[in-house]
Amino acid sequence: MNSMIQVSNVSKNFKSHRVLEDISLNVDKNEIYGLLGPSGAGKTTLVKMIAGIETPSSGKITVLDTAMPSLPIMTRIGFMAQSDALYGELSGKENLDFFASIYGLKGNKKKERISHVAALVNLTDFLKKPVHQYSGGMKRRLSLAAALLHEPEILILDEPTVGIDPVLRQSIWNELYKLSKSGTTILVTTHVMDEAEKCSQLGMLRDGRLIASGSPTQLRESTSSVTIEDAFLYYGGIRYEN
């Protein structure tokens, strides 16, 4: 089956507050699916439900043909949270070592994976340094490396490039393309419109509703917009005159 993630009619309430309303989307294998929307649109809640941390109030989420949440499926997902979830007292290597062990890697395989992902994000020379001495960008890269340790089939990234300089952002995206080519399915959230262009499929999220979905080209052409931002405004109900 080609479909990796299926979200059907999912709604989520926090008490009486409705965060997501009737979301349905589908992510196919090898796709880079971008969830685009302003902060507060419900992106993080949606990806957390897909990752199995949250549960929907109604509707159903299937990942790799299994209903979420499911612990065995979670070993096949790599998750990079919005905040750098790292242990500042530990060195970069110790952080990676910890997450690798949590995913059940051991011995040579573990060593090999740690040096592989560290090289991937250009941190090999800094592995011995304690993480609290890392810069913001280095922490983001280490978080990404931690999400890649167990060679997940699906990679979920929540705002991976926030606060990262353009050069580094480019290199992270190059990394994502490489992973996608080698067979990883990627779900990424962003509020940066120009980043959306880099995705193969897009879902536009606003006020808890999925207002549009399709490839960036499709979205632009069907609204005769020049940029994704214009397309977003169009679907958001604010027609851009002229």
Partner: peptide
């Protein structure tokens, strides 16, 4: 945020 990160693991 490390708790959430851990809860995204098995």
């Amino acid at each position: 945020g490390t708790l959430e990160r851990l809860l995204a693991t098995p």
